[in-house]
Design a protein around this nucleic acid. Structure first.
Lengths: 272, 272
DNA sequence: GTCTATATATAGATAGAC
DNA sequence: GTCTATCTATATATAGAC
């Protein structure tokens, strides 16, 4: 077999058991019967092999789902259910990939990787959106984003049972159960107000960072009024062309004293 | 403030951003204004502080939910929804904890930690089970485990929106939406076959390991028949009091040639 | 493309002085 | 309870011979 592919197979295996950071290049190389040094002739870094695994999985999945041919004459619902069953079976067969993704992740300071992940996720989201619209049509439209969320949430939770806990579950039954649950929600939907309005945010990232900080102050601050005032002055000052650096800094430092605001403040600081 | 508590707060912060393994004790200590050496006067290891954080969160959560007093005269459904809303708000307020748990995890070779996690998860599961039974009564009973799974799946997926993507979502609306979705599923439940039969497995871990391996051979093996035969002989031999070590070993090695069986085989090997 | 040897860095944890 | 210095282990990645 191709050494490169062999390395990737072993890598998925170790990543799925120990997580990305706890797996060494040495282990992967050794499992494939080569030295650590030789590994770097095939991949330029440990992150490199991880990215290649992600890409390959995504390509395989897309190819599989597109090339699947179901008997003709199926209703939309039956077709949807067949695709779901295929996805469930595929996920269980590739359980190591699933485990790898849900364990440790090398994505957190690598923008390239984050973009890749975002992209893969979006692709799945859009796919599900159109599948559900095909089945439920206009009745699903007003709350399609909520329906997609419910669908993905239920699916994922059963994946945990199937994969993390190795539970023996009848997959045909599971597919029917999930679709039947969606049926129920859609049939009931006139009585339900929707929650989500779309998958992509329409406000700017800076605006969002402001909103997040304001919300967090309102919810958790020990000195709500003072912190809100500081926040408003900060927002005003930062909007100015000739913002005073010392003032911005002072207000940030002041707010940083409240530990619960740390995450929101670091996000905001990226825009300075 | 208590230095110990201060260290824990900073630890959650770093763990939530960079993950457990990517955060050094040095960073945590420095953020709290002490040296790395001094850290070890407060906690005996990095894992130690992680466990303490988990325990504290669980205690706080239990206390909060028990001490919450809602107005009297609420219906079961209203009461359930109020508790859900409280949990949503609490989760968003403690988003760093949520991020920490869903990022990197130090649990994978530490049995003590795995037990703790299992315990915390079970506690939540049982809590949800009884809450749902209170609201839906006998109608939910036949498929209560599926209902709990659906409930937790939907909730978790929205938490991802709220926390990872910082989406502004009306929490009151969200709580109503989730409960309404559960209403719909329960009302529709006569027409739905259930999937799960319980949360705890009734067969022994060894038996389960056998089942897993057999299933995996059937689903993924490139030489189904040969591998199944090897599997059956292995199972038979291992059951014997005077099992031949060389035969067990040989059969294991033979099966190991099929890479897709690696996970199941390592699980099984623990019983030898 | 593979090896061994090595550069370089950083981690968790401990020792001993104050 | 805090510091600095140090131990020990292990990691990613590279260099250079074959």
């Amino acid at each position: 077999m191709d050494k490169r592919q062999e390395l990737m197979n072993h890598a998925v295996h170790f990543f799925s058991i120990k997580g990305f950071h706890q797996t060494s290049v040495q282990e992967i190389a050794k499992a494939a019967g080569i030295s650590k040094g030789a590994f770097y002739k095939h991949f330029d870094s440990k992150e490199g092999i991880f990215v290649e695994i992600l890409k390959q999985y995504h390509e395989d999945l897309t190819r599989d789902l597109n090339s699947a041919d179901f008997e003709s004459g199926l209703t939309n619902r039956e077709f949807f259910k067949k695709k779901l069953l295929l996805e469930i079976e595929r996920t269980v067969m590739n359980k190591e990939f699933f485990l790898m993704v849900f364990k440790d992740f090398p994505a957190y300071d690598n923008e390239l990787m984050q973009n890749l992940l975002q992209e893969l996720r979006m692709a799945q989201l859009v796919l599900h959106k159109y599948s559900l619209l095909e089945v439920y049509g206009d009745r699903a439209k007003p709350f399609i984003y909520d329906l997609v969320t419910v669908y993905e949430g239920i699916k994922k939770e059963y994946y945990f049972y199937l994969i993390f806990e190795n539970r023996p579950i009848n997959k045909e039954l599971l597919a029917e159960f999930i679709v039947a649950s969606l049926d129920a929600i859609v049939n009931h939907s006139e009585k339900i107000q929707h929650v989500l309005t779309g998958f992509t945010s329409t406000i700017s990232p800076l605006e969002e960072a402001y909103n997040q900080l304001e919300e967090q102050i309102k919810q958790t601050s020990s000195q709500r009024e003072k912190h809100l005032s500081a926040f408003l002055m900060l927002k005003e000052e930062m909007a100015k062309q000739d913002a005073k650096a010392f003032l911005v800094e002072a207000l940030l430092d002041y707010l940083k004293q409240e530990e619960s605001l740390a995450t929101e403040l670091s996000t905001l600081e990226k825009f300075i």
